[in-house]
Amino acid sequence: MTDFLIYKILLVVGVFTVTLVVAMYATYGERKVAAFLQDRIGPNRAGPFGILQPLADGLKFFMKEEIIPSVSNKFLFILGPSIAMITALMAGVLIPWGNTLIINGTSYSLQITDIDIGILYVFGVVSIGVYGIMIGGWASNNKYSLLGAIRASAQMISYELAMGISIIALIMMTGTLSLGEIVTQQAGGDWNFWNVVYQPLGFLIFIVCAFAECNRAPFDLPECETELVGGYHTEYSSMKLGFYMFAEYINMFISSAVLSTLYFGGYNFPFMNDLGLSHNAITILGTVFLFGKIFFFIFFFMWVRWTLPRFRYDQLMNLGWRVLLPLSIANLLLTALVLLWIDK
């Protein structure tokens, strides 16, 4: 029992640390990718290749003066960024970070917990995440913040629908809600492909919705600086602003992990059973591959951000309700028909 507890605690702390470190270096990566796409050099002063830049940025956030507007509700003002951060960190619990490690005959799973309704948990956490932005934007008592918060909530609700329906099509195919099982089903060999091969449209809808749920460009209307000063975090300064920024990068990391898990085979990689390596070596290699996929998706997020211009708000709503929602319903019906046909 104590063994079990220690191993779970170690795993939780490990996932927590990795999430924070990845999010930290995603900020550095974002600036480097932006610089690369715009033919600049990017941060290169702090440490070799500017590798210490995130630490310097973090320190700067802590040293800045903290301003709480005198008219706002102080408790809710602090609660906003806290909720954003907590919900961003919560979804990592269910991601299968790797297969099992066998040490001294006992097998240790690299997934913290695999509950029966894994996807629903992730979905629930995502849908609660909007409260961080809404409460923060409202408590700021600033018109621009309020507009940002209202935009965020409308956007989240609209894109959650299409996202949910595209996931339902995937669930119908896999027959399970547990993330662990979905990954095991995608294990390689014998013409067994990753889910993206069977659900290309679902994947496309899911990734567009993931962009919207993370408030990333081209859907970053809640913090659109050309119209709303700074959007929902106009009044925030110091580490509370840092928390909002950080939560966005953690969300990006988690959505990349969910995308790789659901559609790109998670920790599985091609020819994994033909290498003739031991079980533990394959597991470690699988985790490395999973992180490779995640980093690719994070890069994709940045690539899109620095390539596409921002949508207008009515275009955003049209895309969500008139394009993605009907497409996802069509995808659902098509999947159902094909499944019926195969079954027969």
């Binding site: 849908s127 209202i150 909530s153 609700i157 959650e160």
Partner: peptide
């Protein structure tokens, strides 16, 4: 996740 967000939306 949905209904209360809409409530808050309308109130705001």
């Amino acid at each position: 996740g949905a209904i209360m967000v809409l409530f808050l939306y309308v109130l705001m």
